[in-house]
Simulated assay, not measured.
Amino acid sequence: MRPLLLSLLLFCSAFTQAAIQTREMPYTGPDGTQLIGYLAWDDAIAGARPGVVVVHEWWGLNDYAKRRARDLAALGYSALAIDMYGGGKNTQHPDDAKAFMSAAMASSEAAKERFNAGLELLKAQPQTDPARLAAIGYCFGGKVVLDMARQGVPLAAVVSFHGALATATPAMPGSVKAKVLVEHGAADSFITPQQISDFKTEMDKAGADYRFVELPGAKHGFSNPDADAHKGHGLDLGYQKAADERSWADMQALFQDVFAK
Rank of each mutant, 00 (worst) to 15 (best):
M1F: 14
L4E: 15
L5A: 14
L9T: 10
L10Y: 05
S13A: 12
S13P: 14
A14W: 10
Q17A: 07
A18H: 03
T22F: 08
R23T: 14
E24Q: 12
P26N: 06
P26L: 04
Y27M: 06
Y27S: 00
G29S: 15
T33L: 01
I36W: 13
G37Q: 04
W41E: 02
G51R: 01
V53M: 09
V54M: 00
V54P: 03
V55K: 04
E57H: 14
W58D: 03
W58T: 00
N62P: 15
D63W: 01
A73Y: 08
A74I: 11
S78G: 13
S78C: 15
S78V: 07
A79Y: 03
A81M: 01
D83W: 01
M84R: 06
Y85N: 09
G87C: 03
K89L: 06
T91W: 05
P94C: 11
D96E: 14
A97H: 07
A99V: 00
A99C: 05
F100P: 00
M101Y: 03
S102K: 03
A106P: 03
E113D: 14
E113V: 08
N116E: 07
G118A: 11
E120S: 13
Q125K: 04
P126H: 11
P126I: 10
D129L: 11
P130M: 09
A131M: 07
L133D: 05
A135Y: 04
I136F: 02
G137K: 00
C139H: 02
C139G: 07
F140C: 10
V145T: 01
L146K: 03
A149F: 10
R150C: 04
Q151W: 13
G152F: 00
L155R: 02
A156E: 13
A156C: 12
A157E: 09
V158Q: 07
V158G: 15
V159K: 08
V159Y: 01
S160A: 10
G163I: 12
A164Q: 13
L165G: 14
A166T: 13
P170S: 11
M172H: 11
M172A: 14
G174W: 10
G174R: 12
V180H: 01
V180L: 06
E183K: 03
H184K: 03
H184L: 15
A187R: 14
A187E: 09
P193M: 10
Q194N: 10
S197A: 13
S197C: 06
D198N: 10
F199Y: 11
F199E: 03
F199A: 00
F199G: 00
E202N: 10
K205C: 05
K205G: 05
A206N: 02
A206P: 06
A206G: 02
A206C: 05
A206F: 01
G207P: 07
R211H: 02
R211S: 04
F212C: 07
F212R: 01
A218T: 10
K219Q: 08
H220G: 01
G221F: 01
F222V: 06
N224A: 06
P225V: 09
P225R: 02
A229K: 11
H230R: 13
G232R: 08
H233T: 09
G238Y: 09
A243I: 07
D244A: 08
E245M: 05
W248D: 04
W248R: 14
D250P: 11
M251L: 12
Q252F: 02
Q252A: 08
L254T: 07
L254A: 00
V258Q: 05
V258R: 07
F259E: 05
F259M: 07
A260M: 07
A260H: 12
A260V: 09
A260F: 11
